[in-house]
């Protein structure tokens, strides 16, 4: 494992923990898209089914379990415990527009036409666009709390770091996986606009608000 891969995993973990802590400490999930969180729970569930079939390392297995557990905990906090603070009115992105094309594409373009492999591929496609309901929510309300911005930055950085990891692996091992690579590029591109706002505003101590 190279440093980019490790930093990517770490950044992903930090994002997930920031979100959980934000909701827990403020007793509120306002500004957070429950729909994106449902998509992430689906992504982890369909990708990590190999927990039961393929052992890679203790690190790998523990991270998978942590990601899955945290994502279900987040969904529970939003739709269960702190439901009263959830922004139903603004979180209106139609997730079937992401789920259905990802599923169709996973059936058409995959490494191997087997159930586990199709589910893995589906999770990769779905993850690349799963943040859209959250970005849609931010654009609808026109602003994001600073802690939510940190969450989005850590979550976006994770796939960017993975891209560097794949570049590294390509040159050092000749390894590449086009499905993950192209989806990873799309995923990172979707964050670009946000990255720009984050660096130009949030890092200078201002709250992230969109121009009217």
């Amino acid at each position: 494992m190279n440093v980019f891969r490790f930093l990517g995993d770490l950044s992903h973990l930090v994002a997930i923990v920031i979100l959980l802590l934000k909701i827990w400490k403020t007793r509120s999930c306002s500004g957070i898209s429950g729909r994106s969180q449902i998509l992430f729970a689906i992504v982890f569930t369909t990708r990590y089914l190999d927990l039961f079939s393929n052992f890679i390392s203790v690190y790998n297995t523990s991270m998978k379990i942590v990601y899955i557990t945290c994502s279900y905990a987040t969904v529970y906090l939003i739709y269960g415990k702190f439901k009263a603070t959830y922004d139903f009115n603004h979180d209106t992105f139609r997730i079937e527009f992401l789920l259905v094309p990802s599923a169709i594409l996973a059936f058409l373009v995959n490494h191997d036409f087997s159930p586990l492999e199709i589910l893995w591929t589906f999770s990769i496609y779905l993850e690349s666009v799963a943040i859209l309901p959250q970005l849609f929510l931010v654009s609808k309300t026109g602003e994001a709390e600073t802690i939510t911005s940190h969450y989005l930055f850590a979550l976006g950085s994770y796939r960017l770091l993975y891209l560097l990891n794949w570049l590294w692996r390509y040159f050092s091992q000749g390894f590449y996986d086009l499905i993950a690579l192209l989806s990873g590029i799309l995923q990172t591109v979707l964050y670009c606009d946000f990255f720009y706002l984050y660096i130009s505003k949030v890092l200078k101590g201002k709250k992230l608000s969109l121009p009217a």
């Binding site: 990708r47 190999d50 393929n54 890679i56 790998n60 490494h111 492999e117 091992q173 390894f175």
Partner: peptide, 10 residues
Amino acid sequence: EYNVYDHDEL
């Protein structure tokens, strides 16, 4: 040899 189906990443 690296097999992409191993999916050793997260």
